[in-house]
Write a protein that binds this DNA or RNA. Structure first.
Lengths: 259, 259
DNA sequence: GCCTATATGATTGAGGTCAATCATATAAAT
DNA sequence: ATTTATATGATTGACCTCAATCATATAGGC
């Protein structure tokens, strides 16, 4: 009945990605897809949930980016997940009135959620190419929300491509908040060229720019560079200066904003 | 025990935004926040879910924007509502390859859902200003999805305004499928000027154009006219020719497509 | 003002979900 | 090779969720 550890790990990784892909899955459906019993699914869910990427609900589990319900463990004093702390730091850097850009990605979604909860905004214009961020911010108090049009990329659930870049010509931002997939000595990089090109177009139109990446991106180098460290205003991350230095990333004080 | 209709509507609107904000909420939590019984919450959930913005799960409800889980209610073999029949008629009018535009609104959302289920599309380019339609169509087979950027209007969950109209200059459509709020002898009308202006811009760039409205819009005349009957290719509706004639709407055969 | 339609909360029975416990098979440890 | 640790599935009982039904109060139409 016992199964090798590496198969267990693989199954749990698969579970994690299934949930993140679908947003929500009921336990019965997970059983069917994974071909294991409910008991095992529940145990797996407990294990993956402890890693902080998903949240269990009665009857299933959902990806964390879908829910600020994760906030219930914020109250219960435990260490809040890295993304939430990054999000608060990013929102603190936003003006109460002005124009900002929000990129796509789970970290940016966390930022959108925190931003939607702010009650002191007066006239903040937010532009985004992320449908998820738009959903969260739609109707938020004090926010005028714009979506930058473009071609829908399924993987990122975001709008990209030539039309998106052209749409940016309409804009200039007081501050841009961007995500990324790789974080190395050379700077921030992404795995898709169209994403990198779009982000560069955003950078060109932003007075200030912040990259928001959690520590899991550290050391990963993806093929399409976006920007070097001298081109950006700040890196918002939960990684320590020591961890960053180990990867050859040394930033002047003020440019590194630790969550 | 009975409560005024506008309060019910407001509570349901609040429910919708609560769920969209938090991504997921358990029923018990909704009860607490709305201060009503579980029975009422379940009824509200059923009502809001029918509008297509959220998905119920066992024990709660989650925002639709990420879940491909919304299709379960199509399976249930009940008599399909008028919108679904309108949707199938509209989708039948779409080319398998080409460029089409989808407007915002619940009827168009139904169309998007049917379109996403089609498996015979080869290279259909779909442009929309509706975030809901985009969510549904994201990743659909054979569809290249584009979102027309613009300012987000909370009421319609769609993108409008000058930027949206300017973004249309990039496009020309083989066919456009549009919604509307009023249906009278004069033609189709809407309650918001920016919506009407945007739709007119779409019409100007579409070789063919179809308005898709269910019978509930019959006789309602809203202040901002969009188009007269001579300017459009067809009206797709579940209303009978007799019902239409009673409102002074007489269309030549071929222009009236009855669902 | 009267009547009807309906929004609500309570109740109930059916069915779903969960954590705990246990037996078992087998991967790791020695 | 033997022993130990653990991953699994089945079972059980407690708890939860849900839809249906009903009584009731009141909004909305006449």
């Amino acid at each position: 009945m016992r199964v090798p550890q590496h198969l267990v790990d693989r199954r749990r990784e698969r579970l994690r990605s299934l949930i993140r892909h679908d947003g929500f899955l009921p336990v019965a459906e997970i059983c069917r897809r994974l071909g294991v019993s409910e008991a095992t699914v529940r145990r797996d869910l407990a294990a993956v949930e402890a890693n902080g990427d998903i949240t269990r609900t009665y009857g299933g589990a959902l990806a964390d980016y879908n829910s600020s319900f994760a906030s219930h463990d914020e109250r219960s004093g435990r260490a809040r997940p890295a993304k939430a702390r990054i999000a608060e730091l990013a929102v603190a850097r936003m003006p109460r009135a002005g124009t900002v850009f929000l990129d796509a990605g789970t970290t940016l979604q966390a930022i959108a959620r925190v931003l939607a909860g702010r009650r002191d905004l007066t006239r903040l214009v937010v532009a985004t190419n992320s449908l998820a961020a738009a959903s969260v911010l739609g109707g938020a108090a004090g926010v005028e929300l714009h979506v930058v049009g473009g071609m829908f990329l399924n993987r990122q659930a975001a709008l990209m491509g030539g039309r998106a870049i052209r749409a940016l010509e309409d804009w200039s931002f007081d501050a841009a908040f961007l995500g990324g997939e790789g974080l190395s000595a050379a700077g921030v990089s992404n795995s898709h060229e169209s994403v990198a090109a779009f982000q560069q177009a955003v950078l060109a139109r932003a007075a200030r720019s912040y990259f928001c990446l959690d520590a899991s991106k550290l050391g990963r180098s993806t093929p399409h560079p976006v920007a070097g460290w001298d081109g950006i205003s700040g890196l918002i991350t939960d990684a320590t200066a020591r961890q960053l230095a180990a990867q050859g990333i040394v930033l002047p004080a003020g440019q590194l904003l630790r969550a």
